[in-house]
Design a binder for these strands. Structure first.
Length: 469
RNA sequence: GUCCCCAUCGUCUAGUGGCCUAGGACACCGGCCUCUCACGCCGGCAACACGGGUUCGACUCCCGUUGGGGACGCCA
């Protein structure tokens, strides 16, 4: 039987990095086995679910290349199915109506906490035989009071819960709506899910769900509970650790496969290999090889991996992202061939596409802002205007603005002035870019173009001649 | 508090009883390359939480301690 897994987020917020990792592992695992990866939106909490969140999740998955093979399915479409299952359990005596008020249960839990025992419902309505017509009730599952619920987790190994640790969970709320555990079990069964891959925070739900499968007479799926992703303080990832939407990573100039590569290495490894292509991920990943301990999100390593993916991508592959980032700075309508040349020149110099734009921005602005303070002092102020003038004159005399020609011309000027390359290149670099770093000086001149290059050299010459003594 | 899970360099990890004076990667620190910045290359710093067992021999197996995390909702 081929494997069927599902990613089942609740649409109460955007898709963050932890959810993306779960989705990635689900998809990768099924890809290798030729199985099916299903997206199911768990919106049984109608109060907190929003359409915006649904959209953000689907968009986030799409950006990462994690589009489902099936779905999205919405639990809100299956309410009747869940309620039917609950009715059946009720009819079979495996569930019961509970008339306890929230207040009385809160009081119960509080007193249990005081006694330092695990807060849980005590089952006081189990044996109740009266059904007061006007009183609201919930439907509770009658959990076996002895025995154990156990399973062989694909990641965590053997896990067992004594049933006396569990209480009677609510299947249907007093407003008649189904709850999470019921919906999950009914859907997992109906959708033919045979492997559940989800976060470790669901471990304690698993014994309850196993009981429900058994009570309904359905086969129990296999489970793989992934260790959680932690923030820098070692606790579960949350807003305060910058658990932002994965789409924010696109805004910040990350490549989807770089993020996938990084996420993949959190908890899974393949010998000493750090870098993976999409293809390799799909061929090599196995959920059974995932480690059991939680990992801490580390931006530095993500940046390094992103830099690697930028370096190894073709300029054509990077073009849409580069254009996207340029667009956000108001730079549009640039020639494609030109942009490809720029990208090629900056690929090894940027860890993100945002950084690439930052570093190449001088090419697109009409006039430079003030020279960077350090660069100005270190390289430009000490330069002789005469050397810049000599270069200006030589470059102005070029027939065409070709990379090789510029190279020859620049070297000739350096030789004529009896200077070292760096003595001329650095001041020129500051003149052209406003900073002390850029691609090679010939490439920089070439990319900047004749008119802007000559203009900026002239500006620097004027600047030096007018500087206060 | 109760239950469940986890524990190798700062971080991500390799390691499945002898190959380990513990390997790789990021970060950091040197050096090389060099017109700058990157890239690349070379080198360095840095870890088996602790205590008991088991064994001829434990990072590897067992128990305990400590530490960390998760769960304990008419949320998912």
């Amino acid at each position: 039987m081929s494997v069927r897994t599902r990613f089942a987020p609740s649409p109460t917020g955007f898709l963050h990095i932890g959810g993306a990792r779960t989705a990635l592992f689900c998809q990768l695992h099924t890809r290798r086995l030729g199985g099916t990866f299903i997206l199911r939106i768990e919106d049984t909490d109608r109060e907190r679910s929003t359409q915006e969140a649904v959209d953000a999740i689907i968009q986030g998955l799409h950006w990462l290349g994690l589009d489902p093979d099936e779905g999205p399915y919405f639990q809100s479409d299956n309410t009747a199915l869940y309620l039917a299952a609950a009715e059946r359990l009720l009819a079979e005596g495996k569930a019961y109506r509970c008339y306890c008020s929230r207040e009385s249960i809160d009081a119960l839990r509080e007193s249990q906490r005081e006694q330092q025992i695990k807060p849980r419902y005590d089952g006081r309505c189990r044996t109740r035989t009266d059904f007061p017509a006007e009183q609201p009730f919930v439907i509770r599952f009658q959990t076996p009071s002895s025995g154990v619920a156990a399973w062989e987790d694909h990641i965590q190994g053997s896990i067992r819960f004594p049933n006396e640790e569990l209480d009677d969970l609510i299947l249907v709320r007093s407003d008649g709506s189904p709850t999470y555990n019921l919906a999950v079990v009914v859907d997992d069964h109906n959708m033919g899910i045979n492997l559940v891959i989800r976060g470790e925070d669901h471990i304690s739900n698993t014994p309850r769900q196993i009981h429900l499968f058994q009570a309904l007479g359905w086969p129990v799926p296999e489970y793989a509970h992934m260790p959680l992703l932690h923030g820098s303080d070692g606790s579960k990832l949350s807003k305060r650790h910058g658990a932002v939407s994965v789409l924010q990573y696109r805004e910040d100039g990350f490549l989807p496969d770089a993020l996938n590569n990084y996420l993949l290495r959190l908890g899974w490894s393949h010998g000493e290999q750090e870098l993976f292509t999409r293809q390799e991920m799909q061929e090599l990943f196995n959920i059974r090889e995932v480690g059991r301990s939680a990992a801490i999100f580390n931006l530095d390593k993500l940046l390094w991996i992103n830099g690697h993916h930028i370096r190894t991508a073709t300029a054509e592959q990077l073009l849409p992202d580069y254009r996207y980032q340029l667009d956000k700075r108001g730079i549009r309508g640039q020639d494609t061939a030109y942009l490809l040349q720029v990208i090629t020149e900056f690929q090894s110099r940027a860890k993100t596409m945002v950084e690439m734009v930052d570093k190449s921005l001088f090419l697109f602005v009409d006039t430079l802002g003030p020279y960077e303070e350090k660069a100005l002092k270190k390289h430009l102020l000490s330069a002789l205007p005469q050397s810049l003038m000599a270069l200006h004159q030589a470059l102005a005399g070029l027939e065409t603005w070709q990379a090789q020609e510029i190279d020859h011309c620049f070297r000739q000027v350096v030789a004529d002035l009896q200077m070292e390359m760096g003595q001329l290149a650095q001041p020129v670099r500051v003149a052209l870019t406003g900073t002390a770093s850029s691609p090679g000086i010939h490439e920089t001149l070439y990319l900047l173009g004749r008119s802007k290059s000559l203009q900026r050299l002239q500006d620097a010459i004027d600047f030096l001649q007018n500087k206060p003594k």
